[in-house]
């Protein structure tokens, strides 16, 4: 899963972080690269659509009261270097400590978690990219644009692949990844005394950690 872009939208729809990762190279460049204003519009549009999406819940679902399981399984070592590399690089403490900020162990979390994004927009599939949205409890949105394209042709024998639906697996991977970015955010943005809430993120440490995670993923 190659991540093309990462956006963070605050709870009032303002874009507070945006990076393009064009390390893949093989992709054709955009005809007209978007300027920062376009991205601001894009972020607030997504924010609005997100709210609309929750208004559109079909009547059948409202009536049937079916319980949907929002648990996202934990996918190990996504974006964090594997345990082996960890052991060799550690000459003692130091390089190991603070590796994951205030998170103990070799990964940010080890348990499955419940998605807070229950009725809002979660995924947008297009011919060229897939967009994933992870929403936190406080309404902050982490948006990843991946170059992976979801298959549009149905499997001839859908029963065979019922449990490994590529679409839902992709959502789980993306949720795991974005949750880790959220963990980084909680460390390197929220614990920065010079950061003012809801404002654009300028921390170079956050930048560095996000880049490292993207490098590990692709």
């Amino acid at each position: 899963m190659a991540i093309q872009s990462l956006l963070i939208v605050n709870k009032s729809g303002g874009l507070i972080y945006h990076r393009n990762f064009t390390g893949t190279g093989s992709h054709e460049q955009q005809k007209q690269p978007l300027n920062s204003n376009d991205y601001l519009i894009l972020a607030s549009t997504l924010h609005g659509v997100f709210a609309i999406a929750s208004q559109l819940t079909p009547k059948a679902l409202q009536l049937s009261q079916t319980q949907i399981d929002y648990t996202i399984p934990y996918i190990p070592n996504l974006g964090t270097s594997s345990g082996a590399a960890n052991a060799t690089s550690s000459g003692g403490r130091g390089s190991n400590i603070g590796k994951l900020g205030s998170f103990k162990g070799d990964d940010f979390f080890k348990d499955s978690f419940t998605s807070w994004n229950k009725s809002g927009l979660r995924q947008l599939c297009t011919d060229q990219f897939t967009m994933f949205i992870y929403q936190t409890m406080s309404g902050l949105k982490f948006i990843a644009i991946s170059s992976t394209v979801m298959p549009q042709r149905q499997d001839l024998n859908p029963d065979r692949n019922k449990n490994i639906n590529p679409n839902n697996l992709a959502i789980q991977v993306a949720d795991n990844f974005l949750r880790k970015v959220y963990c980084l955010y909680s460390d390197y943005v929220m614990k920065d005394p010079f950061y003012s809430m809801e404002m654009p993120i300028k921390s170079d440490l956050f930048e560095k950690k996000v880049n490292a995670m993207i490098d590990n993923i692709s």
Partner: peptide
């Protein structure tokens, strides 16, 4: 709205079309 985003973010010469939109419920 989502279609306009999709087309803004498209790359290359081919038109980028939206296929599906997913929420946690539908």
């Amino acid at each position: 709205s989502l279609r306009s985003i999709t087309q803004k973010l498209s790359r290359g010469l081919n038109k980028n079309e939206m296929r599906s939109i997913s929420t946690g419920k539908y």
